[in-house]
């Protein structure tokens, strides 16, 4: 991101953001509520466009991109939300397979790959359950499975542990670590001090729309 600013009406969400994230990095984005973390995350997958500046994701110019190219850019991304966003009327297996179906993956590839990622998040045995029958931590693991099933280069997570208790959060982080170890870049917005401190990864702190801190092995840095 170069000189990126985002203005919503009369509110300035981000000002003059310059960040470069290398492939394979694990980056936490921290900051108080309303500081611009979510906007930062949304800019990464072109949910919103910046008011000025330029953004490159996996080498693609997100701003100059034509609308019909957006889907193909997003196929290189895995996106995870605080509220999981699973489809309640589909089983765990179908939820994950859905991500492959809609980008027109052939049937025979889908089954093997889905079972593989369910193994990775440790939920293969729940493949036929519905999301409503699972705990929050399990649902988030399904959401992670869905995000990585198409082998993204970059995983973007917006408060993935926001709704989970500390122990479950650590289980989730273990999975993220594994994904990161296999070479996938991860950008995660979070409020979770313990996790940020415990992981010792790069930390970007955003306050009032500006980056106030960028440490290679940082801590959360805020007192709760």
């Amino acid at each position: 991101m170069n000189n990126v600013s985002k203005v919503y009406g009369s509110n300035t969400a981000l000002t003059d953001i310059n960040v470069h994230i290398q492939p394979g990095e694990f980056v936490f984005v921290v900051g108080p509520s309303g500081a611009g973390k979510s906007t930062f995350i949304k800019l990464c997958f072109r949910e919103v466009l910046p008011s000025s500046g330029s953004i490159f994701v996996n080498g693609c110019d997100v701003i100059k991109m034509e609308p019909k190219e957006i889907p193909f850019m997003r196929r290189q991304l895995g996106i995870i939300f605080q509220d999981y966003r699973l489809l309640p009327d589909r089983t765990v297996y179908e939820n994950v397979a859905f991500a492959m179906e809609v980008i027109e993956t052939p049937h025979r590839k889908i089954k093997r790959r889905v079972l593989n990622v369910l193994d990775l998040v440790g939920l293969r045995r729940r493949a036929d359950s519905f999301p409503g029958e699972l705990s929050g931590g399990e649902q988030q693991r399904i959401a992670i499975a869905r995000a990585i099933v198409n082998d993204p280069l970059l995983v973007i997570a917006d408060e993935p542990t926001g709704n989970l208790d500390p122990e479950t959060s650590w289980d989730i982080m273990e999975i993220f670590k594994e994904i990161n170890d296999s070479g996938t870049t991860i950008v995660m917005a979070t409020h979770d001090k313990e996790i940020v401190d415990g992981m010792g990864k790069r930390v970007l702190a955003i306050e009032k729309g500006r980056i106030v801190r960028d440490e290679q092995h940082g801590g959360y840095g805020y007192e709760l």
């Binding site: 997958f45 019909k68 889907p71 193909f72 850019m73 997003r74 196929r75 290189q76 991304l77 996106i79 966003r85 489809l87 859905f98 991500a99 809609v102 980008i103 869905r146 198409n150």
Partner: peptide
């Protein structure tokens, strides 16, 4: 969700 995972 379809939009997020890159469906056209």
């Amino acid at each position: 969700i379809m939009k997020y995972v890159g469906a056209t």
